[in-house]
């Protein structure tokens, strides 16, 4: 069974302001303000290339970030995606 693919609004749907270590995001389609800690803003940025399943998304993130040898990266990414889904910033394609 394939893992679900996730999508996000294009970057122009978000107004992002960096505040000491977190990202303040105004989500234009909903009018809601979010405060996101890493890696959530980076996940949204990676989804700008288009929808992706967690494994493919992880590959995109690996291009820019060094994750070391940790095994549970995909599970951690899925947990962050679930949080972003709850906040309405990503959804299942």
């Amino acid at each position: 069974m394939n893992a679900p693919a996730y999508r996000a609004d294009p970057p122009e749907a978000r107004y992002l302001v960096a505040l000491d270590g977190v990202a303040l995001i105004f989500h234009r389609p909903s009018g809601l303000t979010h405060i996101l800690a890493p890696p959530a803003p980076q996940i949204l940025e990676a989804l700008a290339e288009g929808e992706a399943e967690p494994a493919a998304l992880l590959e995109r993130l690996r291009r820019d970030y060094d994750f070391g040898d940790s095994d549970d990266l995909e599970a951690a990414l899925e947990a962050r995606l679930a949080e972003l889904e709850t906040s309405g910033l990503v959804w299942r394609a």
Partner: peptide, 27 residues
């Protein structure tokens, strides 16, 4: 800064109603 932002949104009575203009002014 993040705590200041949250405290000021709580201290504002019209932050949500102003939408992006409010976000811009407050941030």
């Amino acid at each position: 800064e993040a705590e200041i932002f949250v405290r000021l949104t709580q201290a504002s009575t019209n932050y949500v109603a102003l939408g992006e203009a409010g976000f811009d002014a407050l941030s």
